[in-house]
Nucleic acid binder design. Sequence first.
DNA 1: CTGCGTGCAAATGGTTTGCATCCAC
DNA 2: GTGGATGCAAACCATTTGCACGCAG
Lengths: 134, 134
Amino acid sequence: MSNDENKGARLSRQRETILDELRKVKTHPTADEVYDMVRKILPRISLGTVYRNLDFLSGRGVVLRLGGAGTQKRFDGNPAAHPHLRCSVCGRVDDLEWPLALPELPVEQSMGYSRLRCDVEFVGVCPMCAGRDS
Amino acid sequence: MSNDENKGARLSRQRETILDELRKVKTHPTADEVYDMVRKILPRISLGTVYRNLDFLSGRGVVLRLGGAGTQKRFDGNPAAHPHLRCSVCGRVDDLEWPLALPELPVEQSMGYSRLRCDVEFVGVCPMCAGRDS
DNA sequence: CTGCGTGCAAATGGTTTGCATCCAC
DNA sequence: GTGGATGCAAACCATTTGCACGCAG
């Protein structure tokens, strides 16, 4: 949070709190879940600010923005690429607690794409949701 | 398109055309791109119908709905799980033309999740976009 | 005939943005 | 003091949905 890339960037209380709270949890909250978490500390923060900061932070690689199958994006305080487990019923996302090596792509097979990173997501039904039906 | 799961499902001209067109292209169009493609054949089709049918088809596993990093979902006429390449600049999605084996997850490591499938997406900058800047 | 599918348009829901004010530096 | 950051609310855009009619089986 304090290298060359950050010229002109200020550390507001909002930005700091958002990052703190995001790093504190092991879940992968959506923007409005982050909003709820942070609002307990800064009640006057706005949802727009949360979005702006999550955008700022993920843009700098400080946090991870998870695309994936769901409708809302989710955020991860751990910026290192790692595989996730997503529940297709309730939408929750867990970290995979198993050191699965991310697939490596030889340059010759990258079809001209550059600066590649790899997203791996396992989609299924979480234990809680499996208990309720099927 | 004609097994037990399809009880009560009708094959309207719209549904048939959407599936045909989607299978015809190697791109991975968004819903409104599909709409444009199909509209050339059925000018009176509505965007809502396109969404409803893409939903129907992906729900039955006939086509693939790609979540991933972008804001819009994309659709793939090939329903088999396979890795994709996504351009983070223009959003296009290509098939990886290289037989990369999808990561296998031992049941003991699935953290209680069931019916798992694996999505792999490489995100980077496509040749066209790389030519324009950076 | 029956009821699934469609066209149309309005509604929804997540995310972004314009603007005046605020505050970190 | 100055420009980046915020709060608020309106705007945006992808997607979904209610309803009356149409057509596949």
